[in-house]
Design a protein around this nucleic acid. Structure first.
Lengths: 189, 189
DNA sequence: CCGTTGATGAACACTCTGTTCGGCTACCTG
DNA sequence: CAGGTAGCCGAACAGAGTGTTCATCAACGG
């Protein structure tokens, strides 16, 4: 119903694009709703019929991304390679550089970082299920390590304009993070 | 001069403590200058003679911490152990749990996270200098990996009320991150 | 003890927020 | 292609928070 109206799609697209531009220009927390309105050339009341506030707009944009990312993960089986999830994230990000530049770079703001971290932690824990009775290291802590390493490398790539390609970044992840992970998993098995 | 006046010390201490309490209660971005004023029972004009805005107060508090952390690093020699810096950070944080809970937990806000990340990256790069001509992996990327892993584990510890002790957390860091790091350094030497 | 310095609170202009409402117009559907 | 629906607009509003100013008072250190 609501999603099909051409005017609705137009308005939401204008607002989202304006937000991305402004985040990239001055950082999320310095962007005001007024800025978005002016840039998108959309009326004030219109904005509030679509989104409760600035954060709701941001999260709507983030949700678009995360759904696609989820789909990509659903396709890949939970194999034995502990670096596979990170590689999938890297490939995904390299394929959507503008969005990641705005949402996940240093200017992206804490909100997206927090949500992205939670999403990644969830995907990672689901993927490399060690289903252990008494893990030598809490599973949550291992997931946190993988998430931090993945996001750390990704943030570095974003701030360096996505150098090389996703495979190279994944290779680096393997060199740095994989040895410790496989050792831990082997030790337990 | 200005630092010695009892009134100045009192005012700044009141403001800092009020900010910590409020951050812990509702998160940095939801804390207003007005909140701090009410909690600290300090006049509005007084606040602005000491700090330009809310962020300046936060950074002043952060600087106190970071100076002490710097001193701790200055004492330890740049040895061969790649996990030593992380361990030093963990010990430091476990010794100042209230401050870290307020500043570096999930409620700490993006500003401190950014500054802490930069500080750690700086300390880490200075500590494990590989001074290599053509590193197989950019030095900045390795530093980013260490920083992310350290902060990831630290954030997990904060959110889980500092379980076990700093040594245990450092041990986990060694298990997870050290294998990859030593392999990389060995390969290059 | 006294001159200096900081604290105070009220008042001010300003920016941004989130809501309301009447009128207009583009849009889907039949 | 006609009609009612539904989205857009723009202006206006109250409210919260910000950062500044100033005259007054009190506490401080030398």
């Amino acid at each position: 119903m609501a999603e099909q109206d051409r005017r609705v799609r137009r308005t939401r697209r204008l607002l989202r694009d304006a937000l991305f531009e402004l985040i990239f220009e001055k950082g999320y927390d310095r962007v005001t709703v007024q800025d978005v309105l002016d840039r998108a050339d959309v009326g004030r009341s219109t904005f509030y019929t679509h989104y409760r506030d600035k954060e709701a707009l941001l999260l709507a944009a983030f949700d678009e991304l995360s759904e696609d990312l989820r789909d990509e993960f659903g396709a890949s089986a939970p194999g034995a390679d502990p670096a596979a999830p990170a590689e999938a994230v890297f490939r995904f990000a390299y394929g959507r550089q503008p969005a990641f530049r705005a949402l996940c770079g240093k200017r992206g703001g804490e909100v997206v970082q927090r949500h992205l971290r939670r999403l990644l932690a969830e995907l990672l824990t689901a993927h490399l299920r060690p289903d252990a009775a008494d893990p030598p290291v809490p599973a949550g802590l291992v997931a946190e390590f993988c998430t931090s390493a993945t996001l750390g490398l990704l943030g570095w790539a974003i701030d360096n304009d996505f150098p090389h390609d996703a495979g190279w970044l994944a290779g680096t992840y393997r060199r740095l993070a994989e040895p410790g992970l496989t050792a831990l998993l082997a030790e337990h098995a």
